[in-house]
């Protein structure tokens, strides 16, 4: 939708200051797009496709050639530039896709699940390129991914979209700390566990569950609150026998958010 491929059914959106329905041509000039498929036709040569894309963006013949050689060099593709794209390896094709997306030095670059099908080395390379683009040219990068570690590592702003609705929009750090750490405590008896649960409930923002002789507490800054809680519980005669603190991942954030929204939609249906 933001790349003008699909018209929105409702609402408005602006990319680089241009409306995606009223000013499509300007949006298309402003964005680079790396889709899930390959940008270069398989019967074509990488160099020809880069020059063609540059010409489509209105670069003169000379500039298109110069820009093409720069990009080929930057993505380590110069020696593969005159082979048919169908003969390139997956990693080489992906680098060519990104190079084509960057031909006119776009203000906004869309990367649609760019690391799907890449081996770990190429994935790290790609992440490095993305970081450099953002740091050196100030390119805004919109990255969609199912690898949430990738979003965590790269993104300054994480938006979670579920069934077409934005359900979260913040930095990865803020999203994670809002969900909080998971503190698991073990006790000598089930009675101890229930007594402890009542006490743990006093931690601000805590979400407490009791299982047999155990208590799990999900709370913002849970790792900071845990030592105090353990000391309190020992003083109250319900000593902790085992403890584990796990920091939240974006996966947890995602599951928590989408799980909640699933429950909400069930509630609406009922």
């Amino acid at each position: 939708m933001l790349t003008t491929l699909i018209a929105p059914t409702a609402g408005t959106a602006e990319v680089a200051g241009f409306d995606v329905t009223r000013d499509r041509a300007a949006v298309r000039r402003s964005i680079g797009y790396v889709g899930q498929g390959n940008a270069a036709g398989h019967q074509y040569r990488g160099r020809d496709e880069l020059i063609g894309q540059a010409r489509a963006h209105g670069l003169s013949r000379g500039d298109a050639r110069a820009r093409t050689e720069e990009l080929l060099a930057a993505f380590d593709l110069t020696e593969h530039a005159d082979r048919p794209v169908s003969q390139l390896s997956g990693g080489q094709r992906r680098r060519l896709d990104v190079a084509i997306g960057l031909v006119q030095e776009p203000a906004v670059l869309f990367l649609d699940e760019p690391s799907t099908g890449l081996d770990p080395q190429n994935r790290v390379n790609l992440q490095e390129q993305v970081r450099r683009l953002n740091a050196e040219l100030g390119t805004t990068i919109v990255l969609t991914t199912h690898y949430l570690e990738e979003a965590d590592a790269l993104a300054g702003r994480v938006i979670v979209i579920d069934h077409g609705r934005v359900i979260a929009d913040d930095t990865a750090a803020a999203l994670k700390s809002a969900l909080g750490d998971l503190v698991s405590l073990g006790f000598g008896s089930s009675a101890d566990a229930h007594a402890a649960a009542a006490r743990a409930d006093r931690i601000p923002g805590a979400h407490v569950t009791v299982t047999d002789a155990g208590v799990t507490v999900r709370a913002p800054f849970g790792r900071d609150a845990a030592p105090g809680l353990v000391a309190d519980l020992a003083a109250a005669g319900t000593p902790v026998t085992r403890m584990e603190v796990v920091g939240p991942t974006l996966d947890d954030v995602f599951l928590n958010l989408t799980g909640r929204s699933l429950r909400e939609s069930k509630g609406e249906a009922a």
């Binding site: 959106a13 953002n134 100030g138």
Partner: peptide
Amino acid sequence: MTIEITSARDTAPATASV
């Protein structure tokens, strides 16, 4: 729903090195 994606270029100075 409104999503607005603005260019970071407005704020970040572009370096000419690349």
